[in-house]
Nucleic acid binder design. Structure first.
Lengths: 359, 359
DNA sequence: ACGAGGTGAGAAACCGGTATCTCGATGCGG
DNA sequence: CCGCATCGAGATACCGGTTTCTCACCTCGT
């Protein structure tokens, strides 16, 4: 079934076929036109075709027209692979995220995808869910297939990132900041977010808080937890219970019994999914929110507005992060400095899931 | 600041530098080792290095070891670009979706990403949100940068897809079926899903249904609507009101007043996001669900389980679709036939948002 | 021992563009 | 009217691999 090489079996008039060209493979996609064919058809050199295709101004308009016509006729598309090789760049950027299921990364993905698309760049997406160690390996590999990287790597250790920093460059780091790394980072001021949540809750008379902790090793979780602990120290009468939980709906849902058991009047959840899960769990236990227990989330995913009751949460500019990540990366790729790190200041959105402490 | 070309300014012993090599550019990533350098270091030919790197068995083990050592020492990584060109394949597959914000596509993305990752393939993600016309253009472009395509293109006209079918191949079509296209498709039996919903509702005594329609031109919406209309014809006493709506939370939320106004006792929403939005909207209007109005969704996104009340919805195997899409595409790329189209039969999940018709 | 058959590795021809170099044809100043 | 700078386009040397072709060297058979 395989098509034969094409030439007749015997070269009838070839001069005994001396060396004869060697390599003859490369399943080119069904006789796609190459630059040589176009050059031949237009009666010019390959160089000229290249110049025309790249809009070089030093070509005779008449010639250019002829070339374009030929290209059109053969519906020629320059081979991306060949350009990559010759130019030394891939035309793509890569996004590495730990978990595509997380709405947080989805909106970054979205913002980035659109920005990259507008700039005519491909977007490579890599999920590093498995192994914290894997994160860095995958990032390196992704980097090799792209011109730049947007890296959301919550679990890779700081030193690891510092060590590989220049092999990953240019890249921008998302949702975390690593000291001594020259790559710019875009992150969230988690402490400020937690601060706003806590003062909102204490203002309503809550004293006993439960924190539904995110995944171990998540940088974001670590910061939020640390902020909470610091506040627990600083504020007299503030009592904090930390409950291991996770980052998904189910985790929050499953944690509901432990929440009521620990007797807290307010629950600070690692993120909105957990918060939403615990909301449902509490409802099933017939605990009234916010009557008996207040609940807060983090991130303000699109869904947060539609829980029952609507979730009080910390809003962070997710798609802005995607867009900014692109801007930064683009700058870096064009040799501009990365600029300063930025920490976005989150905003507390007070909705229906929080209220005065009971009693 | 740019590093000098490297050679001493004057070639002291070069023979007056005759022609001198021409092309000298290509910002190779900071002196990355090339196959030539490795060959030189190991004292073998480039061909041999290539053979070793690709695990050809016809190499003297001792030589192979020497090559591997040299490669290790220079930490050599074969250039992806060069391989792409020589091999004629990109090593990547592309996913084209209309809307990355839709959880439906997110889980496909996820399944595909993981499958592709395991196979050592890159995944290109393209969002075609803008223009229905754009969908096809973007798909073509994505295809040029990959070896295969997974295409979720709800709005592109059938003929357009048929016309471009072979320029897109190999590809698999998602969530829709196009007659006369040789690409395999993985889709959902929308009519069956709607059938299940309707018989569930009519079984509970509902007679007046409202359909919150999805985006115009969406193939999925068209099928669901058609199924609904057919049933309205077939079942005596069945009254159907079609309300233009959309596909997002906000759309459903905004539609709530129109729902109560039209007097239906049950709402069939285009998808879970719309359903969830209308749930919230109805709550705000103090309409009890399912006491006064029943609501159903479609898709069973992760969130559906956590609405209040939990959403009765049509469950479709989203990540299975991602995985299957990969399997099919992989098969196609290896020259196997695409196999048959498959229509997944959805399952109705009865949760809390539906109940007996009032009165 | 000598020719046939095998093997392993180097040489070289690609893959399909891009960019430098070179050279013939103009344009222009002196 | 001639020489020099300019300009446009062809020739060609890459980019960094892969693979076919070729050939030297070994082994084996008789």
């Amino acid at each position: 079934m395989r098509a034969s090489t094409g030439d007749g079996e015997q070269d009838l008039e070839a001069p005994a076929s001396p060396p004869r060209p060697a390599g003859r493979r490369g399943p080119r996609p069904a006789g796609q036109a190459t630059i040589s064919r176009v050059a031949e058809a237009a009666g010019v050199s390959r160089a000229t075709v290249s110049r025309v295709m790249n809009g070089s101004p030093t070509v005779n308009p008449e010639l250019a027209a002829r070339v374009r016509a030929a290209a059109e006729a053969l519906d020629y598309e320059p081979s991306a692979a060949a350009r990559r090789l010759a130019l030394g760049r891939t035309g793509a950027v890569a996004l590495v995220v730990p978990d595509l299921a997380n709405p947080l990364f989805q909106s970054v993905l979205r913002g980035l995808s659109q920005a990259a698309g507008r700039a005519g760049r491909q977007l490579l997406v890599v999920e590093s869910d498995e192994d914290p160690e894997e994160e860095v390996i995958l990032a390196l590999e992704a980097r090799r297939n792209s011109d730049g990287l947007v890296l959301a790597s919550p679990r890779a250790p700081d030193e690891r990132l510092r060590a590989l920093g220049d092999r990953l460059a240019p890249f921008v780091l998302l949702y975390r900041e690593v000291a001594g790394l020259e790559a710019p980072s875009l992150s969230i001021d988690n402490a400020a977010g937690i601060g706003a949540v806590v003062s909102h809750l204490t203002g309503h008379g809550h004293r006993r808080l439960a924190y539904l902790a995110g995944p171990d090793g998540s940088a974001g979780n670590a910061e939020r937890l640390a902020a909470l602990r610091a506040l627990a120290q600083a504020v007299p009468g503030f009592e904090l219970t930390v409950l291991a939980c996770g980052s998904m709906f189910e985790h929050g849902h499953a944690a509901a019994p432990r929440v009521v058991e620990c007797g807290a009047s307010a629950v600070v959840a690692f993120n909105d999914m957990v918060a939403s899960g615990v909301l449902t769990g509490l409802r099933e236990l017939e605990v009234r929110v916010p009557g008996e227990v207040s609940v807060t989330g983090f991130d303000d995913i699109p869904f947060a507005r539609y829980t029952t009751p609507p979730l009080t949460t910390v809003s962070i500019p997710q798609s802005e992060l995607g867009r900014q990540a692109w801007e930064r990366l683009w700058g870096l790729m064009n040799g501009e400095g990365g600029g300063y790190n930025v920490r976005y200041q989150p905003r507390l959105l007070i909705r229906g899931s929080t209220g005065p402490a009971p009693g």
